[in-house]
């Protein structure tokens, strides 16, 4: 009996809750760790980035206006659905990162756990980094963290799932909306994650995932005047390394045009299995301080 011909998936972008192909019509071949062709991924263009920013901005008001409890629930739901699809992600991580099944399984588990960890922060960060200030006068004075707005994220190039989740979750759990450029050579876990997000109560546009080249799309996002912050982590791992450094500088210069908050790339891609610091979240929040007189 002849082997069944399998039905392959078209790997698309995730923008505004929909799964469009790249506006440009371009795609690029994705290979596994051994160099075998796996799929064609959509090659996001600057116009896709533009559309993603529009979608993210549109979603920002609603998402940032949700209660922290609700955002926690939504993120926890993402973790549930990711866990549910564990086998699919194990395969994707294996393919992308060339890991054994058990190592890849550990990565997926860590990604799920990371989502759960961040979900719990939604309604705690305000208490940890905000608070009342005892001013020298008859005033009630309270500082609270608020999301900065639309955050562009250049996701890590190596850690295609755990790294991605580790840079995305802190952005959205704090109420921002995100435009993420996935790992260029390892985009498939990102596309799968988009499918998880689409079925996890995450409102459309809160997370937009673009597969493609950070070096091409990054400058458009860094210069975009309606993007409030950018995480440059993904320049690390671009080759050659000097090109990554130069790109990081260029992007930081471009980001100065509207004074985006910039999370600089670390010297090397970090070990994402370590527990993250609060800075992963606080880099993308604004402290707002409200004064009110106390009188009768």
């Amino acid at each position: 009996m002849a082997a069944r011909i399998d039905v392959r998936k078209t790997y698309k972008l995730y923008v505004g809750g929909a799964f469009p192909r790249s506006e440009s019509g371009y795609s690029y071949p994705v290979e596994d760790a051994k160099g075998t062709f796996v799929a064609n991924a959509a090659l996001a263009s600057r116009k896709d980035a533009r559309d993603a920013v529009v979608a993210a901005r549109k979603a920002f008001g609603g998402w940032s206006g949700r209660t922290a409890y609700n955002r926690a629930q939504v993120l926890y739901r993402v973790a549930e659905v990711l866990e549910d699809r564990r086998p699919q992600f194990v395969v994707a991580v294996q393919q992308s990162e060339g890991l054994s099944a058990s190592r890849a399984g550990a990565v997926v588990d860590a990604a799920v756990d990371r989502l759960v960890w961040y979900a719990g922060w939604a309604d705690k960060l305000t208490q940890v980094v905000g608070g009342a200030n005892p001013v020298a006068g008859p005033f009630f004075n309270l500082s609270t963290p608020e999301p900065t707005g639309v955050v562009a994220v250049l996701a890590p190039q190596e850690s295609s799932l755990l790294g991605l989740v580790s840079v995305l979750a802190p952005v959205v759990v704090t109420g921002n909306s995100a435009v993420v450029v996935s790992s260029f050579r390892r985009p498939l876990p990102a596309v799968n994650l988009a499918e998880v997000l689409a079925t996890s109560d995450v409102p459309g546009g809160v997370v937009n995932l673009l597969t493609g080249d950070a070096a091409t799309i990054g400058p458009w996002l860094a210069a975009h005047m309606d993007v409030n912050a950018i995480d440059l982590g993904g320049v690390r791992g671009l080759e050659p390394a000097e090109a990554g450094d130069a790109l990081a500088t260029d992007l930081e210069v471009a980001a100065a045009d509207n004074l985006k908050r910039v999370r600089r790339a670390p010297a090397a891609e970090p070990d994402f299995t370590a527990t993250p610091g609060l800075d992963t979240m606080t880099d993308f929040v604004e402290i707002k301080t409200v004064w009110h007189p106390m009188g009768v």
């Binding site: 006068g137 008859p138 005033f139 007189p293 106390m294 009188g295 009768v296």
Partner: peptide
Amino acid sequence: LHGLPGVDQVGAE
């Protein structure tokens, strides 16, 4: 009387 603008104590003082 209740429609008159309020007085903020701290500001007035």
